[in-house]
């Protein structure tokens, strides 16, 4: 491994910006976030970035590394070609605040438009429920989500077409799926998914699934089953009749 490497970091704010190069010493075992921290401590104290856990658990340090949406804390330098500058940019889909920090607040607002969890009444008089591990596991997969928003970052509906007002994006479809498939939930979000959240905009490109650092099978396990529910409800003539009745 090389003893130093160059990082080409986008620096700027909503008014504009550009790349700046920083050369910093690197050692075995380092991740991108370590290198950025070192640059910050020694060369660019006002460099803006987010991080918390340094272990892929909080979803704060999302960025685009050599064009790939990734967590900086889980990207090892040994997996990058250090002969070339490592290019670091903020996520493109969200408005930039400064340097590597973007305004992701839309995700928090959009979440509130999804109907909240509504459990069935308890199974037992002591107020508890019984659930089988197998039923729980299906939803646990979705609840692994660390809200890094990397999937939102790559989804073309948001990245290119900026349909933020109409479409909730893969992260929030995962959220909706977790609620819809929750063994205790009684709420009905199917109509909203079609009309308000426009699940139909998703054309299953699977880009979101490919970048998910938690390896959530976003498309196959969350979005497609939700789409099926929508189809069943709205496009199956028999079921439609049933629903009207």
């Amino acid at each position: 491994m090389l003893t130093q490497a160059m990082f080409r970091i986008w620096r700027g704010d909503p008014a504009g910006g550009g790349f700046q190069d920083y050369v910093t010493p690197v050692e075995e075992g380092m991740v991108v976030l370590d290198a950025v921290h070192r640059i910050q401590a020694q060369q660019a104290p006002d460099l803006a970035l987010r991080w918390n856990c340094k272990a892929g658990k909080c979803g704060s340090c999302s960025a685009e590394i050599n064009g790939m949406p990734k967590l900086m804390c889980m990207t090892r330098l040994s997996n990058l070609n250090l002969e070339m500058p490592v290019i670091l940019e903020p996520m493109h889909t969200f408005p930039v605040i400064r340097d590597l920090v973007t305004d992701v607040s839309w995700n928090f607002r959009a979440k509130k438009t999804i109907k909240e969890f509504k459990p069935r009444s308890p199974d037992l008089p002591d107020g508890t429920w019984r659930m089988q591990q197998a039923d729980v596991e299906r939803v646990q997969e979705f609840r692994k989500c660390i809200e890094c928003f990397l999937c939102q970052d790559v989804c073309h509906v948001l990245r290119e077409h900026h349909k933020e007002d109409e479409f909730i994006g893969p992260r929030l479809l995962v959220y909706a799926a977790a609620l819809e498939m929750h063994p205790l939930d009684n709420e009905d979000r199917v109509s909203d998914l079609r009309k308000k959240h426009n699940i139909g905009y998703c054309n299953i490109t699977t880009c979101c699934r490919q970048v998910c650092p938690e390896s959530i099978t976003i498309t196959e396990n969350a979005i497609i089953p939700l789409k099926e529910r929508v189809v069943d409800r709205f496009f199956d003539p028999l079921k439609q009749l049933f629903h009207i009745l």
Partner: peptide, 14 residues
């Protein structure tokens, strides 16, 4: 749990 947390389960579902 009543607010949606899904803990791992025992065999009898608790």
């Amino acid at each position: 749990e009543a607010w949606g947390a899904l803990f791992d389960r025992t065999k009898d579902g608790r």
